[in-house]
Amino acid sequence: MKRFYDTELATFRSQLILMGEKVIERIRLALRALAESDTEIARRVIASDDEIDRLELAIDNEAMRFMNLRAPIATELRLVIVGMKASRDLERAGDEATGIAKRALRLAAEPPILTNDDEDAVHLRQMAAVALEMLREALDCLHDSENNDKAIDIVRRDKVVDKLNKRLYRALTARAAANPAEVNRAIELMFISKSLERIADHATNIAEEMVYLAQAKDIRHAGKQG
């Protein structure tokens, strides 16, 4: 039997998904600004940061209002708590998009140290693709919180991004050591790589919360083993 205010929870979930869509778009634009040295796009991403912050506050306020007024049962309470945690992860992923855009803005004024077919550039693009895919699928799990297989797969793929980040860090460190003129640009790319690794971490956090929502089971550590 549906509860009278199930529509409020549906709206709450929709707000989360809207926030996630906007964050994904900001990350895509930030990466495009980086790839194309497009300062206008980079500035647009930076300017849109406040919109994500407002959505997070609106979701938190709605969650608190629901808990205070509706005396939610266990499954509803899990949804509200998980939603608040997910919005925090989405906001932080949005912050990483801002960081990438700011670094893209600085790098646009310098000659690139990576060419399109450079192995390190390929790894950076691969890392961006995996991190974005993980966040996209984490958002899909918000649509369908019963899809635990997809959520667990997201958690497992976090290791792929971690390995790529470490590989890029070593490669960029070697480049900087071999050519001191490239140090600043290499450092900027290291931070971009770290931002992508953090985006994957936030996607992983959301996926773990989706398993908790469906099963009341905490896999935050067990899910990363093996």
Rank of each mutant, 00 (worst) to 15 (best):
G94Y: 05
A104S: 08
D89Q: 07
A109H: 10
A35R: 15
L135C: 11
D60C: 13
R88H: 15
L124W: 05
A121L: 11
L114D: 03
V82D: 08
L79M: 09
I113Y: 04
N116F: 12
K102W: 15
L57E: 12
R65P: 05
A131I: 13
D53S: 01
L105Q: 08
A101V: 02
L107T: 15
T75N: 06
A93G: 01
E62K: 03
A129K: 12
V80F: 05
D50V: 05
A33E: 02
A93L: 02
E36Y: 09
I73S: 04
V122K: 08
R78K: 01
E137P: 15
A33T: 02
A71E: 11
T98Q: 09
A33C: 07
L79Q: 09
L55V: 00
I113N: 02
I81Y: 03
L57G: 02
A138M: 07
T98Y: 07
E110Q: 10
R28A: 10
L135G: 07
D50Y: 12
A33P: 12
A129G: 03
T115S: 13
E133T: 08
M64L: 09
E91A: 09
N116P: 14
D118V: 05
A108Y: 12
D95S: 07
A30C: 08
A129L: 12
R106H: 10
E36N: 10
M67K: 01
A93S: 04
V130Q: 13
H123N: 09
R103M: 04
L31I: 01
A121Q: 02
V82H: 01
A138E: 13
A97C: 08
G94F: 06
T115V: 08
A74R: 00
A121H: 03
L135V: 14
A97D: 00
A47R: 01
E119K: 05
L57I: 06
E62T: 08
R32L: 15
R43T: 00
R32S: 15
A71Q: 15
R26I: 06
S87A: 14
M64F: 01
A63K: 04
L90K: 02
S48F: 11
E133A: 09
D117W: 00
E36G: 01
F66L: 11
E96K: 14
L90A: 04
E119P: 12
A108R: 01
A35F: 13
T115W: 11
D49N: 05
L31R: 07
L114W: 04
D89L: 07
V80T: 02
I81W: 09
A93M: 01
E137Q: 14
E133V: 13
L114I: 10
R65Q: 03
L114T: 00
D89V: 05
F66P: 02
R103G: 03
L69E: 12
V82E: 13
R54F: 04
V122H: 05
L90E: 02
E40C: 04
A109Y: 12
M84C: 02
I59H: 02
A86R: 06
L114Q: 03
E110W: 00
V45Y: 09
M134K: 09
N116K: 08
V122S: 04
R78G: 13
